[in-house]
Design a protein around this nucleic acid. Structure first.
Lengths: 228, 228
DNA sequence: ACCTGAACACCGTTCAAGT
DNA sequence: ACCTGAACACCGTTCAAGT
């Protein structure tokens, strides 16, 4: 049995997985801006260069973070097996899929931008795509339309998160500062923004999200297709 | 008349505007990753620290970049002045607004992520919001619904760009590499992705974009409202 | 008011040396 | 196979000195 001083000391062995985990923790705790290889290393009680035995560079590490978070998405039931139309209705499956994106934003609020920004090379990144295609086809759409539907659904899912993050930054979580920003606006140039100020400042992501989701789903449901 | 050696030498005076312009050029030419204050300074033939006379720090400079690009958006006609319902139909104005986002992505492809990611403090960042609110209200929706519609429209506009950038990165612009990625997928786990491979690899952002846009608009048009 | 060089405290990563 | 310290080429930004 080989000597494993790091285990004797109660520390787990270094690994790609642990490094990615530490990166996620750090981002959630302190933000992406301050994440550095050196910071991760000290967090793991290890020399910086040890990280490079498990990860080729920082860029690949960030890809790994995105991959891990997307891979952990609970994308919902794969849907009816066997007879078409059996099981959960496709509109409900679409809702579940898009809500899974929302859950990511909820569970990893400070990682969302990173996740939605990075390319995801690994197969697990394709699971939401597969899921969307499956439900569109089950709904009776042909291949070409299914691909377009998948793209439109993902666009909304992604954009809703991004817009929300952006709005949150703007509203600053400081109502005072946000209100001042509105006061600086010229009412002649921004009549609607000014007069709808109250609604605009109300932060109700859940309802907003479901409103847009309903729009997408109802539009899809009204689309002509091979069978109902 | 004061001496202005920099003008005599044919160089324009340093200014916040020129610095932001140089930053945009650099990002479009070499990507956001390699953008640095030092690089911008040499590009402008000036010492690094001179930049700090016009811009407080790099973060503020990047905010300036986002602000300038969003501010330059041609958001379309403000719509019917005077009598409601006069002029361009609101669905057409909604299309024009969302297409303006697409134009940004077309004109500044390597800046889009930055623009969609940064908070935009300046009033000009509110112009698309004002525009969306105006057209929703003109369509006969109440204030609360107008705000929700604005949010849903912007979510789609943002998400469509982000998804497209992500897909472009994945498809790599190298069909060979993309095809190999598909081959690595387990057909049992990703049956639809594999069988729709041809459609998935076809890169037709314009049609995809319009498809999703039509979905949103038709759903909005079907919504109950005070008047048509 | 604007420009600047030197300096400081950070980065990511290469390399050679260890076990 | 994995870990590590020293070193290199970069960062952003502070400060004090210039005009």
């Amino acid at each position: 049995m080989p000597r494993r001083p790091e285990i004797e000391a109660g520390r787990a062995a270094l690994s790609r997985d642990r490094i990615i985990g530490a990166a996620i923790d750090l981002i959630e705790r302190e933000g992406e801006a301050t994440l550095s290889m050196r910071r991760i290393a000290t967090e793991l009680g290890v020399a910086v260069m040890s990280l490079y035995n498990h990860v080729p560079n920082k860029d690949a590490l960030l890809d790994g973070v995105a991959e891990r978070i997307i891979g952990g998405m609970e994308v919902g039931e794969v849907g009816p097996v066997g007879v078409r139309g059996e099981g959960v209705h496709w509109t409900e499956r679409a809702r579940a899929l898009i809500r899974a994106y929302r859950k990511v934003a909820h569970d990893y609020p400070r990682c969302v931008t990173l996740v939605l920004t990075r390319k995801i090379d690994a197969p697990s990144g394709m699971r939401p795509v597969e899921h969307a295609l499956a439900l569109a086809e089950d709904a009776g759409f042909d291949g070409e339309t299914s691909v377009r539907i998948m793209r439109a659904l993902l666009a909304y899912a992604i954009g809703a998160q991004m817009r929300e993050v952006g709005a949150a930054k703007l509203l600053d979580y400081l109502p005072k500062a946000a209100a001042e920003r509105f006061d600086r606006l010229d009412p002649a140039e921004f009549p609607h923004v000014v007069s709808f100020q109250d609604q605009l400042m109300r932060h109700d992501p859940e309802t907003d999200f479901e409103f847009g989701l309903d729009l997408m789903i109802s539009a899809l449901d009204a689309l002509p297709r091979r069978q109902g």
